[in-house]
């Protein structure tokens, strides 16, 4: 794993995602930033086996951005890897554009429609079962919001995946501790998060979701041949990570920055790229 490369890619990706918001005045940058280092590690850390020339390649690894509002974090990556031309970023949410507010499978490289919360693990479990029965070894990654864990369907899926020992399933819980109206522990308590997943029969661990080495280590634990269970990686993250005035501020969930804020954010993100 090349941590310097990952840092560089993550800084580039933050900047690209911000431009989508700054230019088109749409999207959820802070929610994308909390799970962005995880997405970066999966795509640029040698984890996701994909074929941009054949997005539906049967043996591909699958990724489901179950918290669909962060799906836009994948859009520049899909361009960078060659799934979609870079010009499409300029047409984000435009009538003739491929990239939509929330991802759906009409976008090459996107597996499923998300946006409505609580679907990702269930759909990924179907892929995992199909892969197992076909003797394939592809992996199924899910990026789950911690607020998404309020959905009861998540826990139905958690039971199911554990029962079937779907060890090709790796779920990152983006634990940024924010939902729209406030901090999760002030709204409806979610802690102890790791204990919940472990109690449901998962291989569970907690990491710093912005530390590439920890993300890598957690993934290796999931891949360990002795691991027979699905893995839940509780990734402690910061909503809005990378833009100081957005960090850990629930109110920024879907707020659009004004001109001065855009100027400041661009400066901070540019500095990250040159750091």
């Amino acid at each position: 794993m090349n941590i310097e490369l990952l840092k560089k890619k993550a800084a580039w990706l933050r900047r690209e995602v911000f431009e989508l918001v700054a230019v088109h005045k749409k999207g959820h940058a802070p929610s994308s930033y909390s799970c962005l280092d995880i997405i970066t590690t999966l795509f640029y850390g040698g984890h996701m086996r994909v074929n941009p020339k054949n997005p539906k390649w049967e043996d591909r690894d699958r990724i489901f951005i179950s918290k669909g509002h962060a799906g836009m974090a994948m859009y520049p990556v899909l361009c960078d890897l060659g799934f979609v031309p870079f010009e499409e970023l300029k047409k984000f949410t435009k009538p003739d554009g491929v990239f939509r507010f929330y991802p759906d499978p009409s976008i090459p490289g996107v597996e499923a429609i998300t946006g409505s919360l609580g679907h990702g693990i269930g759909i990924a479990s179907g892929h995992a079962l199909a892969g197992r029965h076909a003797g394939k070894n592809y992996r199924n990654y899910v990026i789950l919001g911690d607020g998404e864990c309020y959905e009861g369907s998540i826990w139905e899926s958690a039971l199911f995946a554990a029962h079937h020992k779907l060890n090709s399933l790796v779920v990152f819980v983006d634990r940024n501790r924010c939902c729209i109206l406030g901090h999760t522990e002030d709204c409806v308590q979610l802690d102890p998060m790791e204990d919940k997943w472990r109690a449901f029969g998962w291989n569970a661990m907690t990491i710093d979701g912005h530390d590439f080495a920890q993300i890598e280590k957690a993934l290796q634990s999931a891949y360990d041949p002795s691991n027979t269970r699905p893995t839940a990686i509780i990734a402690n993250t910061v909503k809005g990570k990378g833009i100081s005035f957005m960090e850990n501020k629930p109110g920024w969930h879907n707020r659009m920055p004004n001109d001065e804020e855009i100027r400041q954010a661009r400066a901070e993100l540019d500095a990250l790229q040159t750091a």
């Binding site: 499923a112 269930g122 990924a124 179907g126 892929h127 369907s153 899926s157």
Partner: peptide
């Protein structure tokens, strides 16, 4: 709820 989502993943394959 999960049944439908699992079926979705299977159908996609």
């Amino acid at each position: 709820q999960n049944m439908v989502d699992v079926a979705t993943g299977l159908a996609q394959n």
